[in-house]
């Protein structure tokens, strides 16, 4: 397939990016990620459990960085400083890997991004050589600002993280996509396959999701559904949809050659 997309100088085939949170266990994580076809996988950075079974398998054993592009996130950070520290630790953890997902949250209830802190952190991280994929509100002006600063991808929310409410404001997502030249990915809010398809039909370069897969009754099956939805949405976008007609139908079958007399119309 020649329809690839580029991120920080690397080419990807899959436009579905997935998280690794909320799964039952590492086997389920691994199976779902394989079924999703994702090449970029997000992880969180947390303290190691000191004193626990040292032979316990770890996430990076089932999602090896040799096979996947690991995208460490700054989830749980509510200020620029902790987000920057998290990224620096992640870079050390992953042997100098500079791609990060920056998210600085505004409040614990909505997990809505705090854009003031996000902009501060993005500036410092970019100056420090990070390739920043940034989680943002769906404000086209802020999105453009983030691109101008040098973020490698801008990722507006479809709706609140983990809400499964889909894309609440498709007009803003489209506006952001039309204004920016860096990849735009919908991050957060996708609940089911049609939401992912909508994101792609709006012209987005990709979709990032976690809960929609992990919290499905059958996560592996939903992972496959999301893979197909992202591909279908992308194909539909590239194919160019027909114009919408309001109040005006258009028959698919010819009017010529009708062998009966129409009693009406």
């Amino acid at each position: 397939m020649s329809d690839t997309f580029e991120l920080a100088g690397k080419t990807y085939t899959s436009r579905l990016l997935v998280g690794t949170g909320k799964y039952k266990n590492l086997e389920e994580t691994k199976a779902a990620i394989e079924a999703s076809g994702a090449e970029i996988v997000t992880v969180a950075i947390r303290r190691t459990n000191i004193g626990q079974n040292p032979n316990e398998p770890s996430l990076l054993d089932v999602i090896p960085p040799e096979r996947y592009t690991i995208l460490p996130n700054t989830a749980g950070c509510f200020d620029a400083e902790s987000a920057i520290r998290t990224c620096q630790l992640a870079r050390e953890l992953l042997d100098g890997h500079s791609l990060v997902k920056l998210e600085v949250l505004g409040d614990a209830e909505t997990l809505y991004p705090n854009m003031v802190e996000t902009l501060k952190a993005a500036r410092v991280l970019i100056d420090d050589g990070f390739d920043v994929m940034v989680y943002t509100s769906d404000d086209p002006i802020i999105a453009k600002e983030l691109e101008d600063m040098g973020c490698v991808a801008v990722m507006p929310l479809g709706s609140l993280i983990g809400s499964g409410m889909g894309i609440i404001n498709p007009y803003n997502i489209r506006m952001i996509k039309e204004k920016l030249t860096v990849p735009v990915l919908v991050d957060a809010g996708v609940g089911t396959a049609s939401d992912a398809a909508v994101a792609m039909e709006l012209g987005c370069d990709g979709v990032l999701m976690n809960t929609a897969i992990a919290a499905a009754k059958e996560p592996v099956r939903m992972a496959r559904a999301m893979k197909l939805a992202v591909e279908a949405g992308r194909e539909a976008y590239l194919a160019g949809r027909m114009p919408q007609r309001i109040y005006t139908a258009s028959p698919s079958s010819p009017d010529e050659g009708i062998f009966f007399t129409r009693k009406r119309a």
């Binding site: 949170g21 909320k22 969180a44 947390r46 303290r47 190691t48 996430l59 996130n73 983990g162 990032l208």
Partner: peptide
């Protein structure tokens, strides 16, 4: 000292 690793997350 903080010692961190990667865990599941979105």
């Amino acid at each position: 000292i903080e010692i961190i690793h990667a865990v599941g997350g979105g």
